[in-house]
Design a protein around this nucleic acid. Structure first.
Length: 584
RNA sequence: GGGGUUGUAGCUCAGUUGGUUAGAGUGCCGGUCUGUCACACCGGAAGUCGCGGGUUCAAGUCCCGUCAGCCCCGCCA
């Protein structure tokens, strides 16, 4: 039907007869001659309709054609006149002189424009989602989905080349009451009973290891019925990996290898192996478990310098078992009062009472801390032009506060990054964390994560607090790309973990019986990882939003505007499923 | 569940201290135009100011509620 794609035509095609199909991107009607920019997935080419080569009725069709009609064009590729070339277009040296111009897919006037001038803002997110069939025609979105396609293919090739089998696991699976909220699916054949959509294929992939599959991967769709964020969708895709007879470093090397390939596919060169930082170090120096290591600005303990010097808030924090921590900012004295206020507001939003500052400028100290007992230029610990930002309290609080302050500083000062690609492993995560009500414990990640070997005996002995796990995250420029762990293979140790989180043997066997059974049947040591594929695609696409790399995403209220979903269903359907809806 | 923010023509936006007929650009419709590429020029149509209530002589503008988009907190083993 077609001989070429619009965007593929070049000088070498001059004089060729071609047949093209595409969408009318833009029309410039000069009366005697009409130019139509014809668009397909590959790009845009100018179609010219003039009396020298086109019949009047053909030109008449072009006179009337509106944007986004689908047309099939026949004609000759011609070199453009010297002065009529367009160096901004890949196809700008040529045009197609059409002898035939047929509308094969008539279009209503588009509700949102596909074509935009430079610098024109895109339509609102709401309109873009509502008219996704038009939004996805925009070259930016086509580029994003093309990149996503290439990354998917590359991930498959990398994993397959390393000996991993791609194995699909069920979408209709078993509800898991802990963790995120499940999306439930009623079973008509078993009234009153439900499947859940998988939050991840976690247990299946472990069972596959017990099955002797040795190495598994899957481009897995996962579902979590929780509230959304810019970087969180209710259904998302992860590159899910599991391997047998591996240590944590084996898993790290595998994940690094995939990431190097994906970044290469995205046009970036990165180096592996990545450095490793313990969770405790990350919290101490950056206040977060996903530090952006492109920048310094680390957090320091300032207790020795700043306590007992007449600053009540500091001394009180120490008395209550907290600490005084802060960030020394070289050259930070350039920040204005207003900018410091922005940082102080960030600090207060994170729960701090305030943000204490000390500024050294023109060999004068200023800011609230300048009035501390004995504070002077000689002992202030700041070089000329320096700034000190300080928070006091429990570590849990000051970490969150100083993390926010640090990100705010980076935003305000725009320091030159040390590198464009700061990858790091974070390991030695705690195995358990206290529940919100403080009465019990829950797994810091999931209950299948193995404790560090030296902590396993303490766990068997019933200890819970302070145990460290063999869990690890990979972090890139302040973004968590994924996480994984070495798993528990000893069923008795697995039961200890479940017991620690308040689950008796009976309940454990009811919920996780199939996994425990697989572990008892002879399971190899194994571990794995899961990479957030949407987020990786977003970062490599330079998008600031997951929706821009997903063809049909959900809104922040977990609705699909294009297909208008979710929706009510008929009473008949509900009756068949044995479900009654309560209206409140 | 909570907080912030936005909602005015198909689209992107402006709209002063509450004031009489709600504007612009673009798109759309009609016309002129043979080298444009944000074509140019002339003319025209186009509004439930998200929705509901209230205050007021008078509401796009103020107040209350509500719906929707976005961002954040909680939540996301």
């Amino acid at each position: 039907m077609r001989t070429h794609l619009c965007g593929a035509l070049r000088m070498k095609h001059v004089a060729e007869q071609v047949r093209l199909g595409g969408w009318v991107h833009r029309r410039r009607d000069l009366g005697g001659i009409v130019f139509v920019d014809l668009r397909d997935r590959e790009g845009i080419v100018q179609v010219a309709l003039g009396p020298a080569w086109a019949e009047p009725d053909v030109i008449a069709t072009a006179h009337e054609i509106g944007a986004e009609n689908v047309v099939v064009v026949e004609g000759t590729v011609a070199e453009r006149p010297e002065k009529a070339r367009n160096p901004d277009m890949a196809t700008g040296d040529i045009e197609v002189q059409a002898s035939s111009f047929r509308v094969v897919g008539p279009a209503d006037t588009p509700a949102i424009p596909v074509w935009r001038t430079k610098g024109e803002p895109p339509p609102s997110e709401e309109h873009r989602l509502e008219h996704r069939h038009l939004d996805l025609r925009r070259p930016e979105m086509q580029r994003n989905l093309e990149l996503r396609h290439r990354l998917l293919q590359r991930a498959r090739r990398s994993m397959s080349d390393m000996g991993f089998y791609e194995i699909e696991t069920p979408i209709l699976t078993r509800p898991t009451p802990e963790g995120a909220r499940d999306y439930l699916v009623p079973s008509r054949v078993n009234p009153g009973q439900f499947f859940a959509l998988p939050q991840s294929p976690q247990m299946y992939k472990q069972v596959l290891m017990a099955c002797g599959m040795d190495r598994y991967f899957q481009i897995a769709r996962c579902f979590r019925d929780e509230d959304l964020r810019a970087d969180r969708q209710p259904e998302f895709t992860q590159i899910d990996i599991e391997a047998s007879f591996v240590s944590a470093s084996d898993v790290h090397r595998t994940v690094e290898s995939v990431l190097v390939d994906l970044w290469e596919e995205g046009g970036q060169v990165i180096e592996a192996p990545f450095p490793t930082m313990s969770h405790a170090d990350a919290m101490e120096r950056y206040g977060t478990d996903k530090p952006d290591l492109r920048y310094g600005l680390t957090i320091e303990d300032l207790g020795a310098e700043l306590s007992g010097r007449g600053f009540a808030a500091f001394d009180q924090a120490i008395e209550e078992g907290g600490r005084i921590r802060g960030i020394r900012v070289e050259g930070g004295a350039v920040l204005s009062r207003k900018q410091l206020d922005v940082l102080a507001t960030e600090a207060r939003k994170a729960g701090a009472g305030g943000l204490a500052t000390l500024k050294r400028k023109d060999d004068q100290l200023s800011g609230p801390l300048a009035r501390l007992d004995g504070m002077a230029i000689e002992n202030c610990g700041l070089d000329e032009g320096g700034l000190l930002l300080v928070a006091a309290g429990a570590d849990q609080l000051t970490s969150v506060v100083l993390d926010r302050v640090r990100l705010g500083l980076i935003d305000l000062l725009q320091p030159t990054p040390r590198t464009d690609h700061a990858f790091t492993w974070i390991d030695e995560f705690p195995l358990f964390e206290a529940t919100k009500d403080g009465t019990g414990w829950q797994p810091a990640h999931h209950p299948f994560t193995a404790p560090r070997e030296e902590d396993a005996e303490r766990l068997r002995a019933g200890e819970v607090a302070g145990l460290r796990s063999q869990h690890y995250d990979v972090v890139y420029n302040g973004n968590e790309l994924g996480s994984g762990s070495i798993r528990i293979v000893d069923p008795e140790l697995q039961l200890c973990v479940l017991e620690a989180i308040g689950m008796g043997r009976e309940e454990a066997s009811r919920r996780f019986g199939f996994l425990l059974r697989a572990l008892r049947s002879g399971a190899p040591p194994h571990g794995g990882f899961a990479l957030g594929f949407d987020r990786i695609t977003m970062l490599l696409a330079g998008a600031d939003n997951l929706r821009d790399v997903i063809a049909f995403p959900k809104t922040t209220a977990a609705r699909a505007l294009f297909e208008d979903t979710p929706t009510a269903v008929s009473q008949d359907e509900l009756r068949e499923l044995g479900i009654r809806v309560l209206h409140e």
